[in-house]
Design a protein around this nucleic acid. Structure first.
Lengths: 136, 136
DNA sequence: GTAGGGCTTCCCACCATGGGAAGGTCAAGG
DNA sequence: CCTTGACCTTCCCATGGTGGGAAGCCCTAC
């Protein structure tokens, strides 16, 4: 299987497969005589694992940890769960941060007449005008 | 006022002030004889505006738009609100995406015994094992 | 033989920010 | 007068992931 087929089969772009190899996330692929990378089912399985981990928001570093745990048959599931719960905490922190932004923005947008006149509480807030409507 | 004081007064690092100047987000600061940048209250006000916009999650590009609208006395508040509501939509999309991740992860983490044994539904899910507990 | 598609490596871009080196400038204090 | 330290300047590099594209090799089909 060439890199194109592996990409197709895993959903990871060829570009990214090479990159993952370069940074050591996956082992260097075997090469044919013409220097093409070759992949088998096992490699594609790894790529799909990575793809899925990325789609759950894990960083490449976390993904590497998870990959190693996956391949370590004597792992403790507690270690896996620690990675996952840390990531959950991370996501929740970022979600909360963004929700705070949304809350403020919705309030400001609500207070903004949104017509042809120039006065705008959104800009007032950004400008630090403390008399702006509910600048949280 | 030197760049250090402007940084102090605005909460924007000196590094970023220079960067904002370089990309044209703010006008090039005046210079003293010794080539130091000089700032006044007006410039600090702009920097604080940028700082606040960034803290609400606006990109530098959106911030530039808002900055121009702020400085355009004949703006229509509708234009400002369009930028804000687009950004709200963006944030909400990202929040929803992350919440989906959290939901899946929490379920998997809940199903994981988290002890010293190796079997782990989190890894099963990542590995694409469709018999994994509730792999959404 | 040529055309096309795939593969290779290499460099560049994004977005925003920080780190740090090498060198100029200024004020205070010995 | 000289040193020290705290500023400032420009310049390059790194991050995290991903994509774009060029230049060149390889293979197959026509």
């Amino acid at each position: 299987m060439n890199i194109g087929q592996a990409s197709e089969a895993s959903g990871v772009s060829a570009k990214m497969i090479r990159y993952y190899e370069e940074i050591g996330l996956i082992r260097p692929a075997a090469r044919t005589g013409n220097n093409y990378r070759v992949y088998g089912e096992a490699e594609v399985h790894v790529l799909r694992f990575i793809k899925r981990a990325r789609s759950l928001g894990f960083s490449l570093e976390e993904t590497e940890t998870l990959l190693k745990l996956w391949q370590d048959k004597s792992r403790e599931s507690a270690a896996v769960r620690r990675v996952a719960t840390a990531h959950i905490g991370d996501l929740e922190r970022r979600i909360a941060e963004m929700q705070g932004m949304v809350k403020t923005l919705k309030h400001l947008a609500h207070c903004c007449s949104g017509n042809e006149r120039p006065d705008c509480p959104i800009l007032d807030d950004l400008a630090g005008d403390s008399s702006a409507a509910g600048a949280s």
